[in-house]
Design a binder for these strands. Structure first.
Lengths: 180, 180
DNA sequence: AAGTTCATGTAATTGGTTACATGATTTC
DNA sequence: GAAATCATGTAACCAATTACATGAACTT
């Protein structure tokens, strides 16, 4: 599938970056839907280099520190565009350990279950608040074809996802109280 | 992490099953949040057996066909209950290839992007309709501590998730039309 | 001077998919 | 008789995490 490959190509299409920069992106908005650690990124960059999809230039930071600034080669750009234009089937399962646990909720004591749900609720609410704060800084009417357009789509997606999660947790807590 | 381990223990807590039965569960409602193929299930069962968490009895189906019907041993049940009661941090990323692609939407032509969004929308709407049909068959007021309680929680969760996805896709399609 | 962030890599292990392999049972 | 489903396993490979390893640059 090589999804990480395309995530990296896409980021490099936006602008040249180091492996470190790529890792940082996965900790930002993009990290809501894809993530990789540096231990996966550096080998993938090496492979993309060997495949002739990307190239790099050395930049010196400070006195001696060498940074490898990667950017797309034409073959890499073509590969990316082809992938972006493919109409794939929806992925059947986004795994979720907490919801798996809730499937077996009947084995948890009522008070404890409410605690667990509240703990998740708190975390999800915080996440949602953070995303909404980001949305406030965002261009609300991004131009088609601008990178802000993609930023907007994924941010809105993340917000809607978290809202649904919060709604579910709230309903579940209520249900814990009212259930026989 | 061994999440599959607990998914299996949880299923066996509900009732004794074969590996084949477990695989079937991952194709049903539970499959919305966790999934494993038989090639992962059988080795895991073997391991749980070695660890003394489960045991099995041979059942004969038809003339000669042997089924291994697994069930929980006390140690397995204890292990499961401990896991169910742990308050874990929320998982930071549920990977989504399509949303990753949309992050790079600026590299897709408008008409094609609308096609891709509509394709996903169709699939998600179908999925949602299927889930809602299941909800109609479901006990709307499950008793606390019954297995129906867990069934209800995850089904509602799946529905809310799909609704949010559909809402996002619809908004995104509209935005494609109105964006400069 | 100490702590954090920048910066790049490799090794070992775990988790998960795809493919290989076989055969009985049920349904049409 | 053919096709679908039931039933159990292994092997090879790919994806991802955790841990190991190092050192420069910046901030306090």
């Amino acid at each position: 599938m090589r999804t990480l490959k395309y995530a990296i190509l896409g980021l490099l299409k936006r602008k040249p970056r180091t492996g470190y920069d790529i890792a940082k992106e996965f900790k930002a908005e993009l990290g809501n839907f894809w993530r990789a650690r540096h231990s996966q990124i550096y080998p993938e960059l090496k492979r993309l280099l060997e495949e002739g999809l990307i190239e790099y230039e050395i930049e010196i930071a400070g006195e001696t520190m060498e940074k490898k600034v990667y950017n797309l080669k034409p073959a890499g750009e073509k590969d990316l565009i082809d992938w972006l234009n493919t109409d794939e089937e929806m992925v059947p399962t986004a795994k979720d350990k907490f919801r798996l646990r809730m499937y077996f909720a009947s084995n948890i004591k009522r008070e404890r279950l409410i605690e667990l749900l509240n703990s998740q609720l708190k975390q999800r609410q915080d996440k949602l608040a953070m995303l909404e704060a980001k949305m406030d800084e965002q261009d609300r009417d991004p131009e088609f074809g601008s990178k802000e357009f993609g930023d907007f789509l994924v941010l809105e997606s993340a917000i809607l996802r978290e809202q649904a999660y919060v709604e579910w947790l709230e309903r579940s807590i209520r249900r814990c109280y009212i259930a026989k």
